Computed example of a mutant assay.
Amino acid sequence: MANFELKNIKGVIPALITPFDEHEEFDENRMRKLVNHLIERGMDGLYLTGSTGEGFLMTPEERKKVVEVVIDEVHGRIPVIVHVGAISTKISIDLAKHAYATGADAISSVPPFYWKFKEENIYKYYEAVSMSTPLPMIVYNVPLAGLLGFDFICRLANIPNVKGVKYTACTHQDIYKCKDKISQDFMVYSGADEMAVSGIINEADGIIGSFYSMMPDVFKDIYQKVKSGDIAGAQKKQKIAVDIIEASLKYDYYAVIKESLRWMGVDAGYVRAPFMNLSEEEIKKVKQSFKEIKAHYQVNDIEVLNACD
């Protein structure tokens, strides 16, 4: 049974990585430690088994196991949103029903991808998946799977259980337009890490991002500063976050996130192929880049940068 209503799921929500062991198997122990690490740092929710969680590299049964472990470890302390997206409507419905039975607070999904599905195919997909459980559905608008137009998002919002959107496009005017044109109760989550400040200013209810596992302190500070009116302070932290992200994107950045957590005392395991873990030489280069960012901005309050010393 869900513990939180969607209207109360706000704030900073990491798109959770999935720890794998040296043999590319899901590592339950590492996941439990990561969950507690993020809760201790004040995260407001978790978003599971999406692209950051390498969800599309796992079987449906593996995805279910991740959901079971995380919800068990969270134990109702913060909301849990489960990404159930797949190309197959049948698989997504199965994952959605499992999420509901396991105790998720909401589900989310990218549109079906790979084939260039028509708008009606996508509409029917969301209709079928969202109506398969009582949980609220958060539509996922992301370039990787194909962006949804604003008018189509408005159409999807007419499906009874579609209650929000994870908005990872850069057209942030559509964030406040969703609130104005659909409903103030339609939840909008900004999904572009590099544009967190903009998303919050444009009336996003929360922010969901890949690098929040790596920089929970930075994005929590950004969120709180914007909410308190300190836009200049928030933008300074955003610039630092962008530099860290750009340095990470030179590699398979899920591997950078996991490696950096290891520096901070949280063993987040390894990535699954075809992603590649960092070599020793690459680790040195990432650390050097982070040290240069720390020196450039003269900051001492960012955990991941301090961990490079």
Results as ranks from 00 to 15, higher is better:
Glu282Gly: 03
Lys291Asp: 09
Ala169Thr: 00
Phe275Thr: 03
Ala204Pro: 06
Tyr167Ser: 14
Tyr270Cys: 05
Gly206Asp: 04
Gly76Asn: 11
Cys170Gln: 09
Cys154Asn: 13
Val69Pro: 02
Arg41Thr: 07
Thr171Ala: 15
Gly53Gln: 07
Glu246Gln: 14
Val110Arg: 01
Ala247Pro: 02
Gln238Pro: 01
Glu203Trp: 04
Arg63His: 05
Asn8Pro: 06
Leu38Val: 11
Val139Gly: 05
Ser210Val: 06
Ile293Trp: 04
Glu24Lys: 07
Pro60Ala: 08
Ile9Cys: 09
Cys154Phe: 04
His75Ile: 01
Thr102Val: 14
Glu281Ala: 13
Ile91Asn: 07
Ala196His: 04
His37Ile: 00
Leu16Arg: 05
Phe26Lys: 10
Lys33Leu: 13
Ala99Gln: 06
Tyr212Gln: 13
Asn29Arg: 05
Thr49Tyr: 10
Lys65Gln: 12
His75Arg: 08
Leu48Ala: 01
Phe186Arg: 09
Asp221Gly: 01
Gly206Val: 08
Asn121Arg: 06
Met215Ala: 13
Glu24Asp: 13
Val84Ser: 07
Thr168Gly: 09
Asn3Ala: 10
Ile207Tyr: 03
Phe290Thr: 03
Leu249Arg: 10
Asp217Val: 04
Phe113Pro: 01
Tyr123Met: 00
Glu68Asp: 15
Val162Thr: 09
Ala15Pro: 02
Leu147Arg: 12
Lys294Pro: 03
Phe211Thr: 15
Gln173Ala: 10
Val110Met: 13
Lys291Glu: 10
Val266Asn: 12
Phe56Gln: 15
Ala234Tyr: 01
Lys181Asn: 11
Asp180Met: 01
Ile231Phe: 07
His75Tyr: 14
Ile17Leu: 12
Gly191Pro: 13
Gly206Thr: 10
His37Phe: 15
Phe152Lys: 02
Lys227Val: 06
Ala145Asn: 08
Asp217Arg: 04
Val271Asp: 01
Met264Lys: 11
Gly50Asp: 06
Met215Asp: 06
Met187Glu: 03
His37Thr: 00
Phe211Ala: 12
Pro143Cys: 11
Ala86Tyr: 10
Phe56Asp: 15
Lys181Thr: 00
Thr168Ile: 06
Val35Met: 02
Asp180Glu: 13
Asn8Val: 00
Asp185Gln: 05
Ala295Ile: 08
Asp105Thr: 08
Tyr123Arg: 00
Tyr100Phe: 14
Asp185Phe: 06
Asp185Thr: 10
Leu16Cys: 09
Lys236Met: 13
Asp309Glu: 15
Phe275Asp: 01
Gln288Thr: 09
Val74Ser: 03
Ile153Asn: 03
Gly146Val: 07
Leu249Trp: 08
Lys177Ala: 12
Asn29Ser: 10
Lys237Val: 05
Met195Ala: 14
Asp252Pro: 06
Ile293Arg: 04
